[in-house]
Structure formats: C-alpha cells, structure tokens
Design a binder for these strands. Structure first.
Length: 497
RNA sequence: GGCGCGGUACCCAAGUGGUAAGGGAGAGGUCUGCAAAACCUUUAUGCGGGAGUUCGAUUCUCCCCCGCGCCUCCA
C-alpha cells in the first residue's frame, strides 16, 4: 500500500516514493534545548514517531536524523542565568528530553546530533557558499544573499516583496546588504560563547546547522524533512536556499509539517500560563500513554485543541482498547473458529492500514480499530467468539499498536524507572532541572504489583467466606491507593487509576 | 496589508456530490453479594449563515459572519 502524504513543497498529497527502494532517509528538526520541551513540541514528535513507525511497519528501513539545537540566544541567556557553561546547561535538558521521549514511547531516531558538534562542517558549508557567491561577510558576520537564489520562496510560497525594510526585521542586523538576507555566521559578541574558526570568531546562525547535519548523514538529496508548521518560513525555506545553493542539487523530496497544538483554543504562551511540559501533566496525575494517545489521535495536519477534559477522554478511550485486549488474552472461549469474525479482524487490519496510508489519518485508523473491538465484544458477550479467533484479533490489535504504542500499561513502571514517583504534586516551571533530582517528587506512590496481588487474594478469600465487609474494606483501601478492582467472569482484575 | 487554515451532536473528531465514521460524556439494559468496572443499545433530517450550480450539496462556486496561524524567535 503506497503511503500518500501531504508535501508542503508540492502543496498537495503525493504518493511517497523513496530514493532508495526500501530505505527512507528522514531529517527531523528536534528541539532547542533551552528548557523542558512542552506538549506542543511533543505533538510534533508524536507525529514524526507515527510516521517513522508506519514506514517501518510497511517494511522500510528508516534512517532518521534528529537535531538538537544547543546554541542560540535563549540557551546562551538561560545558561548564563543558571551559572553554567552552555554545554553543561544543555546536557541537562537533553537528558530530560531523552527521558520524556521514553515516557512517550517515541522511538529513538537512529542518529541524534547536536549543533555544536558540527561547527567545522558548518564553516565548510559557509566557505563553499562564499566561493559560489551566495555568502558575504559584514562586520565579522556572514550572510546569505537571498536574491541570488532564484528559487527562494518555493516552499513557503512567500512573496519577497512582502518583506519590507525596517518592518518586522531584526533591528540589530542592520548591516545586511538586503533585509531579506539571513545570517549564516554571527560575529562573536562580548560575553557570549564563540568558536574560533577560519571564518573568524563567532557562532552559527540558526539555519545552517540543519543543512549541514542533514546532508552529512543523509546525503545531499534525501527523502523526508519534517517539523512543525512554524518552521516552514523562514527556517526550512532558508535551509533549502543554503543547501541547494551549495550543492546545485535538490535538497529534500518531501517536506512534511505538523500543525500546532493550542490549549483551550488559545495559543500556548507564557503570559497565558498555559504552556505545559510533560512533567507538569504527570504531576497533575495524567499518564504518558494517555498523552501520547491524545496527541496521536488527531491527524497531524489539524490543529489539536488540548484540554484536560480531552486528556481524560483519551484515557477512557485507551482503556476501552486495553479492556478488549485483556479479554482476548484472558477470557475463556469455546473451541472452534468463526469465519465471519476472522473477516472482522482482517477488515479491521485493512481499514487501519488504509487510513494510515492516507496521509496518516490516525482518527480513521482509530475508528477502524474501535469498530473491530465492538464486533469482537458483542460476539464474546453472545458466546459466539471462539478460541480460534483469538489470534487474528490479537494480530490486528498488535499491528495497530505497533503504530500507536499505547496498549501496554507501562506508565507506572517507567515513572519508577526514571525516578518520577511519589511526593509533591507540582514542580515549578522555573526550577533548574536535575532530571534525577527534584523531579523525583512527582507522582503519588502506589502499591507495587505483589502487594496488590496479595490484597486481592485476601479479598477473594473473604468473599468465599461471604465476609463481604472485609472484602469491601480491602476494595476501598485499594481504591484509595489508586487501584481499581474489577470483578469479571474470569476473576478479579485490577488496574491503576 | 500579503499568504494560509478551520467552523460537523454536550465535548473531542473523521468523512463524502447521493443522503452523517469513531471515541468520551449522558440515558437505558446485561452482569454482580452489593457496588464499581466491563460489555451492549441509544443520542446530528443535521454538517457557521445566505445565494448559486446540480436530479440531488454537509461535500463544488460566490458572498458574508466567527475563530485561528504564518509573514519576526517558535514544534
């Protein structure tokens, strides 16, 4: 099944065809590590994760490069405020990001790179651009001569005449030859980090790192470049200009952009106080898997309206899928096999695959799987689900989960693994992060599996003796610890709230 | 000013020129020692408003209203 995907460059949905038959090369703009990533960032990362998972699902080998921008005005400012070197400061947030990534079940890109490890490569590219007449130097800084690159604007469809001198243009870059020109290399400033290079002392401009690192690891022309919509202009437009001016070859074949997320219908902003990090949400008691589910459930090209109610709804939807999975694995069914049900499982699989192939329509993929769940549940309730049907349903559900990755209730285990359990309910946004330090005090500690099982056994014993008072006592105690008991036909089942 | 996106039930959210997926919540039911949970059923003559094209429009065209994004750092 060919993936059809919206290519910003083409301005329409296109069939995806990689350069190399069974291999896909992807570059994704990662994070500027000046602080914790927020859920808006994660919306984009979940989209990119769904993309790479679906490509792998289709049998492609994926080589994904993700960059981490570890030098820019904000990182410099914040590192200085924290009294740390740029490296020490950004290391902390990179570590925090890696933990978040695992909490959200984002597959690790094959190659994760940081800008400051590629200064030499950037210098070389800028030198090439200068030799070809695309770059010029002014007062220690290098700029890209936009008017020399005739394709400028082809991605964002921007009208260059719309950029007017003196309006909406960084005032301290007055020394550019043309207001449209963008900086490749910034001359060193007093009190700021800089690198001594053949270009002179300074630090890289924002766009150059992505051109350099993507081409270094993926070649001068590669398949997919993705990021948030806000990057279309100027970031990606400038990347194209730098890269294609230097190589004379097409830079990227498919440009993919994820829409933003808003909170309660409003843009996230510090002044509104609605910027949430993953840790903020965990501290409020929300589960990483529910967050992933919510972020994945809205197709990537639509604005996602993030609300706590929506997160709660996501949690419940996800629970329904897990319940069905539980029945499939634990409930006893009569021997035999229903051909009709085999068809239900097969068509569920086909439908969700088709939905994803259609520009990653995750909402439709969900609908497909829920339809299968309902039919399966109905058959089970009527005694018409057979042992022989187990495998096909588990197969479809498992395949679906290769993309969505939310079936397993592993939140508690992961939070423990990263020390994000017990203690206070809220961690201030302003605190300097120590991923394994104060971040430990986040979730209310709950009982471990053995303790829970033991209490349940005790309750079963009480119930057999018709000592319901004691049984109910245990049930209530567990509930207070966040453990919900469910008496099913197959015995007592528990889950964490 | 330029470019672009969106308005579908109480909430989230697909989709189509042929008569509205799915989830959550609510209601009813099944199950249960009770309860919860779970499961089933059910919930838009309607898709922002108006006009047009058409045998037929939520889906196409035009106008209007509302919300939003980008054009400057931003996922």
């Amino acid at each position: 099944m060919t993936l059809r995907i919206y290519n910003t460059l083409a301005g329409r949905v296109e069939d995806f065809q990689p350069i190399e038959d069974k291999k896909v090369r992807i570059y994704t703009c990662g994070l500027t590590v000046y602080g914790y990533a927020h859920i808006g960032n994660y919306r984009t990362f979940v989209f990119q994760d769904v993309l790479r998972r679906f490509l792998r699902y289709q049998g492609y080998e994926v080589v994904q490069v993700m960059n981490l921008t570890d030098v820019d005005d904000k990182t410099i400012r914040n590192a200085k405020a924290a009294g740390l070197s740029l490296r020490d400061y950004t290391d902390r947030y990179i570590e925090a990001f890696d933990i978040d990534r695992q909490l959200l079940s984002l597959e690790k890109p094959e190659i994760v790179v940081r800008a400051t490890d590629h200064i030499d490569d950037m210098v070389k590219l800028i030198q090439t651009l200068e030799q070809k007449g695309y770059a010029y130097k002014r007062e220690g800084s290098y700029y890209f001569r936009v008017e020399k690159f005739s394709d400028y604007g082809k991605l964002s469809k921007i009208d260059l005449s719309g950029i007017r001198a003196g309006v909406r243009v960084d005032a301290d870059e007055y020394d550019k030859a043309n207001v449209r020109d963008f900086v490749l290399w910034k001359a060193a400033k007093e009190g700021e980090p800089f690198w001594d290079t053949p270009l002179g002392p300074g630090r890289p401009g924002w766009h150059i790192e992505c051109s350099v690192m993507s081409m270094k690891y993926l070649g001068e022309t590669f398949d997919i470049h993705s990021g948030g919509v806000d990057l279309v202009f100027p970031h990606h437009e400038n990347e194209i200009a730098q890269s294609e001016a230097a190589t004379g070859k097409p830079f990227v074949r498919y440009w993919l952009h994820g829409e933003h997320l808003v909170v309660n219908g409003e843009k996230m902003s510090k002044s509104l106080g609605n910027v949430y990090t993953l840790r903020d949400l965990i501290a409020k008691g929300f589960r990483p898997t529910a967050i992933r589910y919510l972020l994945a459930s809205v197709p990537y090209r639509s604005i996602l309206n993030f609300t706590f109610e929506g997160l709660q709804q996501a949690r419940h939807s996800m629970e329904r899928l897990r319940n069905f999975h539980y029945r499939l694995t634990k409930e006893a069914f009569p021997a035999g096999k229903s051909e009709d049900l085999e068809q239900v499982a097969a068509s569920g699989r086909r439908s969700f695959e088709e939905a994803l192939a259609d520009n990653l329509n995750t909402a439709e993929a969900l609908a497909a799987i829920f339809e299968m769940v309902r039919e399966g549940n109905t058959a089970m309730d009527q005694g018409k689900f057979f042992d022989g049907n187990r495998e096909a349903f588990l197969d479809t559900l498992g395949r679906w989960d290769q993309i969505f990755a939310v079936l397993e209730d592993n939140d508690q285990a992961k939070l423990r693994q990263f020390g994000l359990v017990k203690g206070e309910q809220k961690v201030s946004l302003e605190e300097v992060p120590v991923p394994n330090g104060e971040a430990k005090k986040m979730l209310v500690e709950t009982l471990n599996d053995e303790e829970i099982e033991k209490r349940i056994a005790e309750r079963e014993e009480a119930r057999r003796g018709r000592d319901f008072k004691h049984a109910d006592q245990i049930r209530n105690d567990l509930l207070k610890s966040g453990i919900l008991l469910e008496d099913t036909k197959a015995g007592a089942r528990w889950k964490r709230m």
